[in-house]
Simulated assay, not measured.
Amino acid sequence: MANIKSAKKRIKVTLVRTERNKAIRSKVKTAIKKVESAVAASDKQLAQANLKNAVVEITKAASKGVYHKNNASRKVARLSKAVDSINA
């Protein structure tokens, strides 16, 4: 355990940020799974609706630094491609 005051604070801050990042990552994963399940069911309307929500969640995560912008962009592109592939 740390003895220095600033080190103790860093530990606390790290724990808080870790929890926040986990929650954001979980939201993104859930949104992605919803899109993928709609694509698997070939439900284009539901997939497009879920895609909109997923893009918002991914963009928020990228803006908060949870995901790198290129990683976020790649996720959005792959989901969009999957949704577009329905009845193509």
Rank of each mutant, 00 (worst) to 15 (best):
A49P: 04
A49N: 13
N50E: 05
N50A: 10
N50L: 08
N50C: 04
N50Y: 08
N50F: 09
L51Y: 02
L51T: 03
L51A: 03
L51W: 01
L51F: 05
K52N: 12
K52S: 12
K52Q: 13
K52W: 12
N53A: 15
N53Q: 15
N53T: 15
A54M: 03
A54P: 00
A54Q: 01
A54E: 00
A54Y: 01
V55L: 12
V55W: 06
V55D: 07
V56D: 14
V56N: 14
V56E: 14
E57F: 12
E57M: 14
E57K: 13
E57Y: 09
I58S: 00
I58H: 00
I58C: 01
I58F: 00
T59C: 10
T59I: 11
T59A: 10
K60Q: 09
K60R: 06
A61H: 01
A61C: 04
S63T: 15
S63Y: 14
S63R: 10
S63K: 11
K64L: 14
K64N: 11
G65Q: 01
G65H: 06
V66A: 04
V66M: 03
V66Y: 08
V66F: 07
V66K: 03
Y67A: 10
Y67K: 05
Y67H: 09
H68K: 15
H68P: 15
H68V: 08
K69E: 13
N70V: 02
N70D: 11
N70I: 01
N71W: 10
N71P: 11
N71R: 13
A72L: 04
A72D: 04
S73P: 11
S73E: 05
S73D: 06
S73A: 08
R74S: 08
R74A: 09
R74M: 03
K75W: 01
K75Q: 03
K75S: 09
V76W: 03
V76H: 03
A77F: 09
A77E: 06
A77C: 05
A77K: 08
R78I: 11
R78Q: 04
R78H: 03
